[in-house]
Structures are given as structure tokens and as C-alpha cells.
């Protein structure tokens, strides 16, 4: 990997992690556009149970409660998983010469 690529990875991941650290503090907790529409038009549907219990529901670590710290850790883990998976899929599917 070239130095330019390493630089891109470091800058890109740093920006992602900084956004991830800020998000639990600054993100709006209001319902999103879809939930808000459902609240107005068909609130019953919001009572539906999730099909599976996710590992880190609502971007929080179970046991750490719904605190910004818990959110930061959860989002950080997500960033690393997505980065690794996307990189892996790239390697797996790339053009072969």
C-alpha cells in the first residue's frame, strides 16, 4: 500500500471516529423522518417488536446503559466492523489481472 493510501485511510478513519465520538452528544434524539411519519399516520405500527434482539440496540452497549460513553463505544465498534468488512469484500471481489 502506498503512503498516499495510508494517509487516506488514517485521515478517513479519523474523521469517521471523530463523527462517531460527537454523534452521541450532538445527534438529535427526535424521531427520524420515517418514524415521525408513522407517529402521525399509523402509531400502532411502531409497537411492532423487532424480529431479533440486536447486540447493541440503539447504538448502546448493554450493561453501560444509554449514556453518551456507551454510544461512543458502540459506534466505534460499528465503524471498525464496517471498515473491515468493506475492505475484505473489496479484496475478495476486486478485478483480477
Amino acid at each position: 500500500m502506498s503512503i498516499k493510501d495510508k494517509k487516506l485511510l488514517i485521515i478517513g478513519l479519523t474523521i469517521a471516529i471523530v463523527i462517531g465520538i460527537l454523534a452521541p452528544f450532538f445527534a438529535s434524539t427526535n424521531p427520524d423522518g420515517l418514524e415521525s411519519t408513522a407517529e402521525k399516520l399509523n402509531p400502532n405500527v411502531l409497537e411492532s417488536e423487532p424480529f431479533i434482539n440486536s447486540i447493541m440496540p440503539d447504538y448502546n452497549i448493554p450493561g453501560l446503559g444509554e449514556t453518551p460513553f456507551s454510544g461512543v463505544i458502540a459506534i466505534f465498534i460499528g465503524i471498525i466492523i464496517v471498515f473491515a468488512l468493506a475492505y475484505g469484500i473489496g479484496i475478495l471481489l476486486k478485478k483480477r489481472s
Binding site: D5, L8, L13, G20, A27, S28, N30, I79, Y87, K95
Partner: peptide, 29 residues
């Protein structure tokens, strides 16, 4: 991907994935 995804695009692909995930957690009012 098998016909077009260049090896040099992979770092950008992965970084964009990480960035998109992070920014999707940042709901703007």
C-alpha cells in the same frame, strides 16, 4: 466488482463505508 473494481479503489471504498456508518449515527434536527 470482478470486472471493474480496481485494487487502488479499495481503501477509498472501505473508508467511505466507515464514514457513511458514522455519519448515519449523526441525526440532524
Amino acid at each position: 466488482a470482478k470486472n471493474n473494481l480496481d485494487e487502488k479503489q479499495i481503501p477509498l471504498l472501505a473508508v467511505l463505508g466507515a464514514g457513511v456508518f458514522a455519519i448515519m449515527a449523526m441525526n440532524i434536527p
